[in-house]
């Protein structure tokens, strides 16, 4: 177990492993998204209240889920990096931020476009769900800004890991915001007592999209970790050998 763990944490080993894994995550991921999107748009029946406008859920929920998932990965990887001084963990944390930020933006934008016809507003200042999700976008942006502001990579790793851990408090707040405070936003549909409150014909495309988005996120993350590892290890021998003897590199 520990041998495997240490091997995984070795940059050249991880670099090769990531190269192999990326297509195995990306292609099934995009295939699931293609199925989920098609079935969500054309096969699932319209909702009894929202009619066809509810179909925005097929991208809104996966995006919102990933925005939180990416943040947790970023915070946990940052914590592991702080405790075990593992450089690879910091590389993972740094790589999760831009992808997480893009999905947070998508969750906010799709929610806004959904809210206009259904709630009657693009955006409501003061709504706890909307506010906490917006705060997360700012946390991502702050994290990336902090990283780019510190030239020394080791210092940037530490400072940004602390910021990520502090901001992690916001993740459960987002999830429970609709229960703790009154909100315009609906309650949880999928993760709730008594199981998902959704017809099966509507549910399966949604689950396919959530899984598909997660796999694609995994592929994107590994792709970025590869760049990050290469950048950090630029002066090591294995990178030199890799560059001088190309072939299986890119």
């Amino acid at each position: 177990m520990w041998k495997w763990f240490h091997q995984l944490a070795s940059p050249p080993h991880f670099f090769r492993l990531a190269s192999v894994l990326i297509p195995w995550l990306a292609w099934p991921g995009y295939a699931l998204i293609a199925y989920g999107t098609f079935a969500g748009l054309f096969v699932a029946p319209p909702d009894y209240q929202q009619s066809d406008a509810f179909r925005i859920i097929y991208v809104h929920v996966p995006a919102a889920y990933l925005s939180m998932m990416a943040y947790m990965i970023m915070a946990i990887a940052g914590g592991i990096g702080l405790i075990w001084r593992m450089k690879l963990a910091h590389a993972v944390a740094a790589s999760a931020a831009p992808i997480g930020a893009s999905f947070t933006f998508l969750a906010l934008a799709s929610g806004s476009v959904w809210g206009r016809p259904m709630w009657g507003t693009w955006w409501e200042w003061g709504d706890p769900r909307l506010m906490s999700e917006l705060l997360m976008l700012f946390l991502y942006i702050g994290y990336m800004a902090l990283r780019s502001a510190i030239d020394d990579t080791t210092k940037a790793d530490k400072a940004s890991a602390v910021l990520a851990l502090v901001g992690a408090v916001n993740v459960p707040v987002i999830h429970y915001s609709v229960e703790w405070w009154s909100s315009l936003h609906q309650g949880a549909t999928l993760i709730r007592e008594g199981g998902p409150a959704m017809d099966a014909a509507m549910l399966y495309p949604l689950l396919a999209n959530i899984l598909g988005f997660s796999l694609v996120f995994g592929a994107l993350l590994l792709r970025r970790v590869r760049s990050e590892v290469l950048r950090r290890e630029g002066r090591t021998r294995w990178v030199r050998e890799l560059v001088l003897a190309p072939g299986d590199s890119a």
Partner: peptide, 18 residues
Amino acid sequence: DEVLAKHDENYMAPEVAE
């Protein structure tokens, strides 16, 4: 001066709801 609608967490086909 403003009225917004709130929808619930249940999703179902119109026939089922009826």
